Measured scan of single mutants.
Amino acid sequence: QVALSRTQVCGILREELFQGDAFHQSDTHIFIIMGASGDLAKKKIYPTIWWLFRDGLLPENTFIVGYARSRLTVADIRKQSEPFFKATPEEKLKLEDFFARNSYVAGQYDDAASYQRLNSHMNALHLGSQANRLFYLALPPTVYEAVTKNIHESCMSQIGWNRIIVEKPFGRDLQSSDRLSNHISSLFREDQIYRIDHYLGKEMVQNLMVLRFANRIFGPIWNRDNIACVILTFKEPFGTEGRGGYFDEFGIIRDVMQNHLLQMLCLVAMEKPASTNSDDVRDEKVKVLKCISEVQANNVVLGQYVGNPDGEGEATKGYLDDPTVPRGSTTATFAAVVLYVENERWDGVPFILRCGKALNERKAEVRLQFHDVAGDIFHQQCKRNELVIRVQPNEAVYTKMMTKKPGMFFNPEESELDLTYGNRYKNVKLPDAYERLILDVFCGSQMHFVRSDELREAWRIFTPLLHQIELEKPKPIPYIYGSRGPTEADELMKRVGFQYEGTYKWVNPHKL
């Protein structure tokens, strides 16, 4: 086992960053958080920038500027975001240094004079007029057009580079997404736009490419001749908990499936790229999406959770019991969808996408189930092999396979070949997804960000279904809070070829 401390991990990262040409360590950078008073800024962006600063992973002359409508001070920003920093008493001095680099400007999102004030403020910072500028839009999409237009007109660096990070949702359907994309691309070049999907920053999602293309053993079996089906799962054990009003506007397909799960599907299904260059990788992902037809209604199961009468606390409440959810809402909190990649490698292999709230566990994984062994000599005792990439929690890679049961006879039983990170790298604290992705933006690497043509294809696949749901308002199937979801989803999976045995229990190697 390799035991690495946080300091050692960050030392390795620093070495990698400083050796590259793309990370300008000594240049002045300004990180501007648009929507600095909001939840995302408070819980994710400010803490992430602090962790990067604490670990010495930001360029040395980096300033952080918050911008929002609320009249706040840096002290206010500190008060609301610091509880999420997880700072230790030993880091007190470092924390003071961090907040000394912070400033805040209040202004409207659609007022040109406010942006001119913001620009004057940035120019007044040390070497601010020639600094590289990175704008993070932690804002609702309704203000994107006004904000990007004003940034472009008043706040661009004339000497350094300018980059803009856009948070999902990128529209509600193909038409609104196209409108937003066309607007942003009329102001910024594609190499300046970073559409963030934080799932692409997760260690195991990034590991998929290495697993596939750096190991000879997987190449020959990664196709329709050997793989019976692919299941991509995202499960949350909690409901909307008072935030249903926002969720109800989008629903589970827009929230998770059309982005996170579809991105994971691309990494499983794509061909080997010409290189690890950002556009070479994204070219292959677009090719996969172009091979997927629009979702067919007979390959869809929609569910909505109801309270568990035997549960406790939140578990007793259904989705419609959330006071922020519109009365009688038919918005799905669970969806199972089957897609097919219609190309030579994957023809006929079902890709089953499942996601839901208020389920029995927290889990995100990719599961490849292989065909049955031909010419069975073990009297149907063999179960199908599976390769599982567990994204969260407890990152893991393992192969479910058959071995001989101890004893006199040739009785096979299920076991696993474990390729888990935790076994080799004991207690290594890896940077989280937002840390990686923000560092990628500083480096100018777009590999783990969504390109406009990729986004367009993703919406093309799901828009007809979303429009049909909005028009017909089908009643989702009720499922109990804390269950596996509607049984109809299991029946759909069985119908397209997935075999669920229920006889195997994964042993978490992190707890051995």
Rank of each mutant, 00 (worst) to 15 (best):
E413M: 11
L471F: 11
F378D: 04
E312N: 15
V268I: 13
S445M: 11
E416A: 05
V300M: 12
V325H: 05
V373R: 05
R390E: 07
V337C: 15
K290I: 01
I352Q: 00
R282E: 04
G318T: 07
V268C: 12
S483A: 12
A358Q: 03
E457G: 07
D418K: 05
N423Y: 11
P323K: 13
P406K: 08
A332V: 05
Q304V: 06
V301M: 06
K285M: 04
C443I: 12
D440Y: 04
N385F: 04
H371L: 10
C443Q: 08
G375W: 09
V366C: 13
V281C: 10
L465F: 14
Q380I: 07
R436L: 05
Q468G: 13
Q380A: 13
A433Q: 00
S278T: 08
R390N: 15
P478V: 09
Y421C: 05
K383C: 15
R362L: 09
R354T: 04
V288D: 05
K383T: 15
A274Y: 13
M402Q: 14
S483L: 08
L262A: 11
A489M: 09
V441Y: 00
Q446I: 11
L466P: 02
D279H: 10
R484Q: 01
V301I: 14
P273D: 06
E457R: 06
Y425N: 08
C266T: 15
S483E: 10
V366T: 06
D280P: 10
R254E: 00
T399F: 09
I352L: 09
L302D: 02
R282Q: 00
A332Y: 04
E488F: 08
Q263K: 04
M408I: 09
T276S: 11
L359Q: 11
P309H: 09
K363P: 03
G313P: 10
T330Y: 11
V325F: 03
S415Y: 03
R495N: 10
K285P: 01
A458G: 12
V388S: 06
R495I: 12
S483W: 06
L417I: 01
E470G: 11
Q446T: 09
R451G: 04
F442C: 08
F351T: 02
D376S: 10
G311N: 14
N298M: 10
A335M: 06
S275W: 03
K290H: 10
V341M: 10
P431M: 06
M257A: 12
K426M: 10
D372W: 06
V397C: 09
K400I: 06
D280E: 08
M447L: 12
E344Y: 06
K287T: 08
P323M: 14
F442A: 12
Y481C: 11
A297S: 15
G482Q: 08
I438C: 08
P464H: 10
P474L: 13
T316S: 14
N427Y: 09
E365W: 03
K287Y: 06
L267R: 01
L339F: 09
Y398A: 01
K287W: 06
Y504A: 04
K272G: 07
Q304E: 00
G422A: 11
S452P: 06
P431T: 09
T399P: 01
G303S: 00
C266E: 04
F378S: 05
E284R: 07
T330E: 13
A269D: 05
C355H: 01
L387R: 02
M493Y: 12
Y425M: 06
L439P: 00
K287A: 11
P350W: 01
C266P: 02
V341A: 06
E395Y: 03
K285E: 01
P326L: 07
D376P: 11
R254C: 07
L419A: 06
G485T: 00
V338N: 12
N423I: 09
R345N: 12
L471G: 11
K290C: 07
K272Q: 10
I352T: 04
A335D: 01
D372P: 13
P350S: 00
K429L: 14
A396K: 01
E294R: 11
N411C: 10
C291S: 15
I469T: 14
Y500F: 15
K287I: 06
M408R: 09
I292Q: 02
G407P: 03
R345M: 11
G311S: 11
V388Q: 01
D418N: 07
V450R: 02
L353T: 03
F334V: 02
I292K: 03
L261I: 08
K363I: 06
F351D: 05
E501K: 10
Q369V: 08
I292N: 04
R327K: 10
E361Y: 04
N423P: 15
E501G: 10
E342I: 10
Y500L: 06
G444R: 09
V341N: 03
P326Y: 07
N298C: 13
D310N: 15
N394M: 10
A274T: 14
D321P: 05
A364V: 11
L265V: 10
G482L: 04
P412H: 10
G311D: 07
K363H: 03
G307F: 05
N259Q: 05
L265H: 01
D490E: 08
Q304T: 09
G318K: 06
S293G: 12
G407R: 04
E344F: 09
C355E: 01
F370V: 05
N427E: 14
T403L: 12
T463D: 15
D440Q: 10
N343A: 07
L368G: 00
P476W: 01
Q369K: 05
V338C: 12
T487N: 11
T333H: 01
G311Y: 09
C355M: 05
V281F: 00
N308L: 08
I377C: 11
V338P: 10
F378Q: 05
E344Q: 12
Q304I: 01
F370N: 02
R327L: 14
G422R: 15
N259K: 03
V301W: 01
D321Q: 08
E454S: 03
P474F: 11
K357L: 02
P273V: 00
G303T: 03
D376E: 12
Y479V: 05
A269N: 02
K272T: 05
E416G: 10
L466R: 00
T403E: 06
L430C: 10
L261T: 05
G485S: 04
A335K: 05
H260M: 03
V301K: 09
K429V: 10
G497L: 02
R345P: 05
A336I: 07
I377D: 09
G307W: 01
D255V: 03
Y425E: 05
G375A: 13
M401N: 02
R282V: 02
L320P: 07
S445A: 15
M493V: 15
K473D: 12
A297V: 14
E361S: 07
P486G: 04
E342V: 10
L265Q: 00
W459I: 00
E491K: 13
N277S: 15
G313K: 11
S483R: 08
Y481N: 13
Y479T: 02
I292F: 05
V450L: 07
E414T: 14
R460L: 05
R384I: 02
A489T: 09
S275Q: 06
M401H: 12
K400S: 00
K272N: 06
E457M: 09
K272E: 12
N343T: 09
M402K: 06
K405Q: 15
K290E: 14
A315K: 13
L265M: 12
I469P: 00
F351H: 02
L302P: 03
E314K: 09
D279Y: 11
L353D: 04
N360V: 00
K400P: 02
A297H: 14
E365L: 04
M493T: 13
R282D: 01
Y340D: 05
H448D: 08
T324D: 08
I377N: 08
S445G: 15
R436S: 11
V301G: 00
E454F: 07
E271T: 05
Q392I: 03
L265W: 00
D322M: 06
T463Q: 06
A315F: 09
N427L: 09
K494R: 10
L265F: 12
F442I: 13
M270G: 08
V373Q: 11
M270R: 00
K505I: 12
M402H: 10
A489H: 08
